[in-house]
Design a protein around this nucleic acid. Structure first.
Lengths: 299, 299
DNA sequence: ACTTAATCATAGCTAAAGCCTATCAATTAA
DNA sequence: TTAATTGATAGGCTTTAGCTATGATTAAGT
């Protein structure tokens, strides 16, 4: 295998036509350059340099190979400068995965801050259900997920970002619409509208509801939170909505959003990465940025 | 300095996503590849590979640098294949220098054979006076000279090709035109037309003439053998012409070419190269080819 | 749950290679 | 003839790329 150093020696000889000066330019002794060049010639099986006391010159083969050598060294130099440019741990592309019940409500609150604190990171956003996100994270297609951390994700590493309260969404006409001091136990006997299977929010929300004695309304399953919200708005039933989705008074004329008193049902939103993920500095910045953004919103 | 071997390891990891298999493809042990890759990462200051038991993947930086690495390796490969192509000692360009009193008369006799015996050599022909040719040979602008070898060329290496007799060129009307058993001493008292200074033929021819008691006609100096021939043809005088220039019966209706009896005046034509010239095999072929070509012409 | 297999990292060693200083040999210039 | 220049040679030192053996961790199978 050719060595890059030898190619440097060769180009230096071509430049200086003098072993001593060429060696000096390579910061080695003259015997070193002399010896290595001879080895290279032996290795290639052809003479590259014509040696005379007064006059060193390249053979035709040497001339031609110097051109090739320069190309190789140029490519190697590009490799190194490329590596140097990549040294900035706060630069490059980053693929961020979020679940559908979080992305549209969270992103408006965090992206501005993220782009400010990590100006050289290009965020690519991916919206999918938990299972798919985890698989893509594992495959390396995604770098970072933001989703509720569950026990079965213990092969990954997670950083808690915030707890998102679940709020009760009711039609204005509903009996719970104007109740103060709302508690989970108030759900007893209610039928709850839910999302379709696969959305982790469904499992979490129904977990709270079951334990409170409420039941799932099996007559319909919404494919998105917005569908769910519209169903509540049109009086079809009640549901639990994450705080961020309830915020902003969407359909506030027809829907009442109620806060639960303690124990407040929440879903814990975490940032999830592969263990050994290479850009930990970046991850720490993201965690800090999102926490800061959220602290202004979730009390 | 980056090492090409490390770049091979990196691309192998990219290909196999598996240290053991990548190492096998590079014909090294797994710990070797593992260690070298870690060194590379440390050297660049950035992580290239995300290591998991089940799943090895490149970091974004790694992905990008693998592309650069491939370019470097491709250039290196081209260097080596280029070297292999140059291995053939009987291929490539060769710059051949000849003097003006030889080139037009010798080349027709030798080029066909040279091109046959060295089909992959591209001969570039250069016609100049001895002094210039020697300087260009020394500078490496020329590879091989064909000219009369003189004592002051002892810093070069020479191979005798043939002895070219010098013939007497006279107008048909000249007193020596029809003389049989021509001898140098017959030149006694004659005035000899000569070439301009700088042509080595002038010095050689006049050397023979002086020692025979002839003198130089200072009224004119020809700049080429053809001019000289025309001057003889038009009755302006006599001169010595090299046999190859006299051959072919040029202007044979007006000029008589006479052979000298022994001692025959000759100029010894040699092939001259730099000592240590890299393509000796080629030189030997040229010498052999020219000698063979000439043996058919000069008796 | 325990065992086995797979896989990458670590430790310790060896051999080769690159580099150095000192010196030689050959040439050129004074 | 002498001194200076220049590339090659000799011998030794240090680094490093490579190996084998082993450890640690995870995935999978019984």
């Amino acid at each position: 295998m050719i060595k890059l150093r030898d190619l440097e020696y060769l180009t230096a000889i071509d430049k200086y036509k003098h072993f001593g000066k060429a060696a000096q330019s390579c910061f080695v002794s003259q015997p070193t350059l002399s010896g290595q060049l001879m080895k290279l010639e032996e290795q290639l099986g052809l003479q590259l340099v014509e040696r005379h006391r007064r006059n060193v010159m390249l053979t035709p083969a040497g001339e031609q190979l110097v051109k090739e050598a320069r190309k190789v060294l140029q490519a190697a130099g590009h490799f190194e400068s490329c590596a140097k440019a990549l040294l900035d741990p706060f630069a490059g592309d980053l693929h961020l995965g979020l679940i559908p019940t979080l992305a549209p409500y969270l992103l408006p609150h965090i992206m501005a801050d993220l782009n400010t604190s990590l100006p050289n990171i290009n965020f690519f956003l991916h919206e999918n259900q938990t299972k798919i996100l985890l698989q893509q994270l594992d495959e390396g297609k995604l770098d970072v997920l933001i989703l509720p951390y569950l026990a079965d994700m213990d092969k990954f590493e997670s950083y808690k970002l915030f707890d998102e309260p679940l709020m009760l969404a009711t039609p204005k006409s509903h009996r719970l619409a104007n109740k103060k001091e709302l508690s989970l136990s108030d759900l007893h006997g209610e039928k709850i509208l839910t999302l379709a299977d696969g959305h982790c929010l469904k499992d979490q929300a129904m977990g709270y509801c079951f334990s409170a004695g409420a039941k799932e309304d099996n007559s319909f399953q919404a494919t998105s939170l917005e569908t769910l919200r519209h169903m509540v708005a049109s009086g079809m039933g009640i549901t639990l909505l994450p705080a961020l989705a309830a915020q902003g008074n969407l359909a506030s004329d027809t829907i009442q959003y109620g806060k639960f008193q303690s124990p407040v049902p929440v879903r814990g939103i975490s940032l999830v990465i592969r263990p050994n993920y290479s850009r930990m500095q970046c991850v720490r910045s993201i965690v800090a940025s999102v926490r800061k953004s959220l602290s202004r919103i979730i009390t």
